[in-house]
């Protein structure tokens, strides 16, 4: 297949474990050699999508094309090209060396094993001299996750999938994992798909971010998602209670439980409560995090309002002149008409 063929092309996918939850993806593709981030709340379907992409599970319905070929029958060969790093590292009850070497050994690739294992340990910032001989129980959580990542990187996979790889690791390990992912992509043109809650961490190593909400792809990751239920309120507006007496106002939703989408650039930030303003939504909040958005260099600001975290973008000039720093109390302001319906 040529390079313009998407590596993954999913169509009409539906997958569920019970009556309550279903992953529904009408169309979705991942281009070759790209790095894609998946964000969304717990239980939204990120892990399920990763299990489908890693061929651990076949969707109940729908079709997957991998490199232009339909995925069916014996998946052994495909599984050799794709590997998944699990959220909680599971190491075999063997030495670090044997854990990292396992994938190569079962493939019968035993040449230069020692050099390759040591190289993979180096990639994740673990000194082979110190760690190769360690037992599985002699590692911290972050070290165990890095061994888990090394045992995948050594396979030089075509696709590396990672499910919340930094959820249970320290900041140092998270940075080293990030570096290792970036390096493998540069070295081997590996396609990367990462699910993570840490959007700042994710935005540093992904080309694009996809947001999943209740089993559906609902945007490109930067949008704020505000789920219902919505109730009729004053002035032909509808509203949703978010906590501490605060409400978010919107135009009439298509249904009570509709999901609203609010773009970060539609939100303004004020350091004092604005008066005489036509916008219906003025919510108090506290700045949690500032990140430089890769695509346009604007500052992305995460504000925790009562009951919901909202992401806004401002220019670096605005961030500086308003002294927008983590911990600062601010007000987020947006019009009811800024909320569109999913």
């Amino acid at each position: 297949m040529n390079e313009t063929t998407p590596l993954y092309a999913l169509s009409h996918i539906q997958h569920g474990y019970g009556r309550d939850f279903t992953l529904v993806i009408p169309e979705f593709s991942i281009e070759q050699k790209t790095s894609v981030g998946l964000v969304g709340p717990n239980g939204c379907g990120k892990s399920t999508l990763l299990r489908i992409l890693s061929f651990l599970e076949a969707p109940n319905t729908g079709e997957i094309l991998f490199d232009g070929r339909k995925v069916e029958g014996d998946l052994g060969e495909l599984r050799n090209q794709v590997t998944l790093v699990l959220q909680e590292p599971y190491l075999l009850k063997r030495s670090v060396f044997d854990n990292v070497a396992y994938g190569l050994r079962i493939r019968g690739e035993k040449h230069d094993l020692k050099e390759r294992v040591h190289e993979a340990l180096d990639w994740v910032g673990l000194s082979p001299k110190i760690f190769a001989g360690r037992r599985w129980y002699e590692l911290s959580g972050g070290e165990a996750q890095r061994v888990s990542v090394a045992s995948r990187l050594i396979l030089r996979p075509r696709v590396l999938l990672l499910d919340e790889p930094t959820a249970s690791v320290d900041t140092h390990s998270a940075q080293l994992i990030q570096k290792a992912i970036r390096d493998i992509r540069t070295r081997f043109d590996t396609t990367i798909v990462i699910a993570s809650h840490d959007r700042a961490w994710l935005s540093n190593i992904t080309d694009s971010i996809i947001r999943i909400h209740k089993g559906r792809i609902v945007g490109t990751g930067v949008e704020n998602i505000i789920p219902g239920p919505w109730g009729a309120d004053r002035d032909n507006l509808w509203s949703k209670e978010i906590g501490e007496g605060n409400r978010i106002y919107a135009l009439k939703p298509p249904e009570e439980h509709a999901v609203a989408v609010l773009h970060p650039w539609d939100i303004m930030i004020a350091t004092e409560p604005p008066s005489a303003i036509s916008a219906q939504n003025i919510l108090p909040g506290e700045i949690r995090q500032l990140t430089v958005a890769r695509e346009n260099g604007r500052i992305q600001i995460d504000v925790q309002t009562p009951g919901i975290a909202l992401t806004c973008t401002v220019t670096d000039h605005a961030a500086e002149s308003l002294s927008l720093l983590p911990g600062r109390k601010v007000f987020v302001v947006f019009k009811a008409s800024s909320l569109s319906w999913q």
Partner: peptide, 22 residues
């Protein structure tokens, strides 16, 4: 998690069984 871990490393039927016993 052992089985999923082994599958993601590329192990198949007999290899998974042997690794499980070990």
């Amino acid at each position: 998690r052992l089985r999923v871990n082994l599958l993601t490393l590329g192990a198949r039927g007999k290899q998974i069984a042997i690794a499980s016993l070990l």
